[in-house]
Each structure stands twice: as structure tokens, then as C-alpha cells.
Amino acid sequence: MASTLLPFAYPPPSSLFLTAFTAASVVAIPFIGLSEVRGVHLQYSKFWNANAAKREARTVPGRTGMVVLYLPALLGGVASLVMFPDAGLRFLVLRLAVTAHFLKRVLEVLFLHKITTRMAADSMVLISFSYFMIATVTIYSLRLSQGLFPEPSIDLMYPGIALFLIGMIGNFYHHLVLSRLRTKGEKEYKIPKGGLFGLVICPHYLFEIIDFIGIAFICQTIYFFAVALNTIAYLAGRSYATRRWYKSKFEDFPEGVKALIPYIF
């Protein structure tokens, strides 16, 4: 994989720490999406909360849990902006992108999403730590690579900025559509309508994938290419499971509405 990506990415540094995280991301790719398809869901979704037995586990309010998921990663991004004030354009753009990504998530949890479920406390801690490590290791991987190697021969930073902004805007818009789906006091689920929901049931995941691809293009490290592939696998599996869930709940679910990619999947 490394030899194929080298024109597009920094060579992998001789770092046991970074190599281990990259290898873990690569190894997880075939499994993380399949776990969602098979019904093994992260313990903060409507799928997990549908299981009454698991609800007996120690939980926290969903909104609190979601803030805790993203806040450490956001603080890691903010800290990197303070710690490395003058380190080149690509490094600045990456740190801004990572910080903006998690700031958007925190703000959406606080002011946009309607969260009625609870979250398992142990899952909250694990996922929060995972997001924090992704954010900080992403920044570290570029910092280390820039100190050791010249820039990749094919510069993807500016296409990456464009993809990142498209992903952020598209993801926010479809989250806004979802937030307006139910009026105050309503708890029952509805088939989403508006935006790209007429084509796929998870356009917010589609744009999140575009967001991650944008960050991968900005960063151009093999580590974050592995993270992006891992994210694509997970969101593809989650989209498939979401479509299956909607079909089981609504007899009138449109057959033409795909899971993630219009007309294809």
C-alpha cells in the first residue's frame, strides 16, 4: 500500500507508535463495517437502545455523552494551534480542519440534535479516547512527516480543502433536515425527506466521508489514509444497517432510496 500511495503521501516514518496506529486502522477495515451490518452496533445509537437488555448497563444522558465523545478531540486540536503557531501552511490547514470538524460536532450536539437516548458510560469513555487519539495522532503524523521528508510530489491540499468544506456543509445541512423532522415532544421515527434523502437514507454519512477524504488529502499521510478507509468502511456498514432498520419499521419505505451512494449502494 505504501509504495502505491507514495506519490500522494509522505513516506511512512520510522515510528513504532505511528506504525502501530496505522496497522490497527488497516486491520480494522474489513471488520468495522461488517460489525454494523451484522447488528453489533456502537452503544449510543437507536439500534443499541432498541435492545432492552443492554439498556440495563450503566448509562449517562445522551447529550452529555455525545459532548464527552468529541470535546477531548476538539481540545486537542485547539492545543495544537497554540503549541505550533508557525509550522507551515499545510500543517496550519490540517490543524484548523481537525479543530473545525470536532467543533462542529460539539455545537451540533449542544444546539441542533434532538437526543432522547442514553449512552453506555464505558462506551462513552472508549469512543472519546479513540476520537482524541485520531485527532492528535493525525496532527502528530503530519508534524513528524514534514520534519523528515519533502512534500509529496502530487499536492492534494487544495482539492482537500474543497472536499472538506463540501463535506462539512453537506453534513450540517442534512443534520439540520433531520433535526426538523420531528416537532417538539415527538419521539417516533419518520422517513427523512429533503436534500439527498430522496436518493439515500444516510446523506449525512456520505458527506462525512467526503469530509474525511478532504482531511486525508490535506494531511497526505499514510496514517490518515488508513483512518479515512476505516471511516468509509464503518459508515458504509452503518448506512446499510440504517436502511435495513427503516425498511423493517416502515412498510412504505421507498425501494429506490439507497443506503449511502445514490443509485448504487
Rank of each mutant, 00 (worst) to 15 (best):
V137D: 01
P262W: 00
I154V: 12
H175A: 03
S123H: 14
A73D: 13
F172M: 09
Y223M: 09
S128I: 03
M157L: 11
P150A: 01
L260F: 00
S141V: 05
L89H: 08
R55G: 14
H101E: 03
K258W: 03
F91Q: 14
M133K: 08
G76S: 12
I201P: 11
S248L: 01
I191E: 08
D86L: 02
M124P: 08
L81M: 12
I201C: 15
K187E: 14
G214H: 13
I261A: 01
L148M: 13
I210D: 09
R55Q: 15
P85C: 00
E251K: 12
I261G: 01
F164G: 08
L112E: 03
V227K: 05
A233T: 10
E255I: 00
Q43C: 10
A20W: 10
L148H: 10
I222C: 04
Y263H: 04
G33Y: 11
I232W: 07
I134M: 11
K249F: 00
R238N: 00
A233H: 09
L144G: 02
R95F: 01
G65L: 12
L196I: 08
Y44K: 09
M157G: 04
V125R: 06
S14C: 04
Y10I: 00
A162H: 04
F212R: 13
D211W: 14
P30C: 05
S153T: 01
G198I: 08
G77F: 10
R182G: 00
V200G: 12
I29S: 11
K46M: 08
D252W: 00
L196C: 11
T136E: 02
S239Q: 01
V177R: 07
L178K: 03
P192Y: 04
I191A: 09
A24Y: 12
A20F: 14
L89I: 06
G185T: 04
F217A: 14
H204P: 08
A9M: 00
L107M: 14
A52T: 15
F21C: 15
R58Y: 12
M124E: 04
A241Y: 00
P7D: 00
V37P: 05
T59I: 05
P30M: 02
F164V: 08
F132W: 11
F224K: 07
A50Q: 15
I169Q: 04
K258G: 01
R90G: 02
V67A: 13
G39R: 07
H204E: 09
A20D: 07
E186Y: 06
Y70F: 15
Y140Q: 11
M66H: 15
C202E: 02
F172S: 11
V26E: 02
Y158E: 05
S123D: 09
L18W: 04
A53G: 15
E208P: 09
G195W: 03
T242Y: 00
F31E: 12
F197V: 12
L181A: 04
F250W: 05
Y70I: 09
L69G: 11
H101M: 06
L178D: 04
R90N: 02
S145W: 09
V27T: 13
E208F: 04
T22M: 10
R180M: 08
L165F: 13
T64C: 10
E151L: 04
A50N: 15
F132A: 14
F265T: 05
G195L: 04
I169W: 11
